[in-house]
Nucleic acid binder design. Structure first.
Lengths: 210, 210, 210, 210
DNA sequence: CATGAATGAGAGTTCATTCAT
DNA sequence: GATGAATGAACTCTCATTCAT
């Protein structure tokens, strides 16, 4: 019995590993060649398995996308935690903004899937998996609330303020990711982004604070 | 002669109308079912013509997308002009923001094509048609500059400030269009958007102005 | 009545002219861009009429091909007549060979249609229009017979000898036209052809003649 | 292990057989209905598979044509080797001619593809695959040279003489294959061909030899 | 006489998915 | 557990042809 459990566990672990290999590959294709190139065949080819094998680990293509989606949110959430140690709410919020954008730009494929792409999300809403996104939004709200409590931000409806901030960072991220920044020379882009972030955050800061 | 002219004119008009029906249908499919579902066949089916007929009005699928793209920017640019009469730069800028978002939300298909979609833009960049987008950005910069000159906005790098504002409005628009606002009850959305816009604009306003 | 006849005649002439314009255009397309490019649309475009108009002058595309075919044979036959004045049968035959090849190389599109292409011929056989080809073959036979009678060529079955000669010239023509002469540098081709013709004709010549 | 090898081998063999079925079918369509009718769909229909299946065995349509082409030249070359044992150059050359024509008439699909068809050859030339054809031509030249050395054929430029002979046999083959022999009753055709071959070969033979 | 408008048929090709082995 | 083999459904696009005007 114990032995069987051991075997079962190992099997389970192997299964999990295979799933991850598939996801990893899907993600890479996604990054490198764009969404259209994420075909079952292409994934299969890269991991040197047959297309049919993929279906042993995922019900269909959509499930792969969904899993990627979930994984993306997981990473995103974890990454955000690194701001927790920052005591000062205002500094924490600024860092929150920075980290949001850097996640987006360093993981454009995830970000795209999570916040831009159309396809997979439809069914998510039904399946309430959007809750993953919600959790992050709540996290932001807490941060904003702390800033209000500490007098850094003018008291406003919390949802409104958080949505505004989110919109702003998302705006930057999605313009860059979807390549609408041709106006600027590429090499200047980082400092323009940095500057824009500063510009907005400074604005949010309450007039007479500090 | 006059009669012939009349006929020719009518024919021309009918041709134009057909083009627009096609574009309209493409737009609708686009927003309803996503880019992938914008197929020649689907368009043809909806307007109850054969696929081959489409090709009498457009060279190929890409031309349809390009036409939509161009038309979108045209409308967008024209719409923006209505803020010109507003004298006060600050009020003008606020209105600019409002109008930007309302264009996006009222013409989500166009907006998506213009500022979010990936596909068709690639070739556009090469073809300098992105200049249409540039023109609008320049327009925004002028507006921002006027605000700085009038002391409404802290003097900052113009590109940076304009990019920040654009990012913000684009962020709102694209979150809504790509359906990432499930956190909020749909009926509250308009006032949340309005509130967020206010919140940000108030922020941008120079501390000691007014 | 007389007047009507005049009008009818003129109409007929105009109709004929239009047919020829179409044929001419078809031929040109044929030469310039190859068989595949001979589409009704392409023809129509070049003569600046609508595709539908073509059908007022020809029943269908095949009829155009057939007409071209006939025209080709007509020209071919006429061209061959220029050897008639040559008295000496042997010299006449040699010239026959030369003229055959030069027709082929100077009118490759016709030649191809007449002697190589597959498509249009099927129905020709049924319609006995191949008689045009036959007539030319008979002409060759007469020439060969004269050579035999004059002792230039060993007496053999006339059909056999004529077929052999025809095969030879056709072989050269079709290898060149269908581009199987890559072995030879292009500039040498003319003299190789000339040489081959000489080589074969000299061969045919009866051993002890002259 | 042995068993697996057996299975692998069998699979490989089956795969090869399928490829050959496809090629065979393509060939047949080709000769029966002409090049235009060689469509992926038509092939699929005949072998009672779906069009998509074809693509499991060939990258695209062109690859099928290329494979046929290559196979054709391979067979052709091999077939020609059977004249090698013939010692006497003249007899060898005669046999060469006979074998050329019989290859053409027994494998009209291959012959057409190799020496008549227009389409696929274009790209071949670039890819040097025409070298296969060249090899055969060189083989002929050797044969002709031997005949000259042995005094059977008047000394002439080797290229010229070989080209002449090739043209002749090709002429016969292509007239027959492309169905321009309606002048003759079908049943007499074989002996006419045989006769023509004799007629020409006898001609080539040097006057005072033997 | 001429044609604008339309289309059915059909081409090559790709993909997610299934299923017997 | 893995897969080779197969396919239905789709895609974009082209062409010869028709017909009402």
């Amino acid at each position: 019995m114990v032995i069987n459990m051991g075997i079962a566990e190992r099997k389970e672990k192997e299964k999990q590993q295979m799933r991850e290999r598939i996801l990893e590959t899907a993600k890479r294709l996604f990054i490198e060649d764009g969404f259209d190139k994420v075909t079952i065949r292409a994934i299969a080819e890269r991991i040197e398995y047959s297309p049919a094998t993929i279906y042993l680990y995922f019900k269909d293509k959509n499930e792969i996308l969904l899993a990627l989606h979930a994984e993306g949110f997981e990473r995103f959430y974890k990454l955000q935690q690194i701001i927790l140690p920052i005591r000062d709410p205002w500094k924490r919020l600024r860092e929150h903004g920075r980290i949001y954008i850097s996640f987006a730009l360093e993981n454009p494929e995830y970000y795209d899937l999570m916040f831009i792409m159309r396809g997979p999300v439809r069914e998510l809403k039904a399946k309430k998996e959007w809750s993953a996104g919600m959790r992050s939004f709540e996290f932001l709200k807490e941060n904003v609330k702390a800033c209000m409590d500490a007098g850094y931000i003018q008291r406003t409806d919390l949802d409104v303020a958080a949505f505004a901030i989110w919109s702003f960072t998302h705006g930057i991220a999605s313009l860059v990711i979807r390549d609408r920044t041709a106006n600027f020379p590429e090499r200047l882009l980082p400092e323009i982004i940095e500057g824009a972030l500063d510009f907005m955050m400074r604005g949010i800061l309450k007039k007479n604070s500090k």
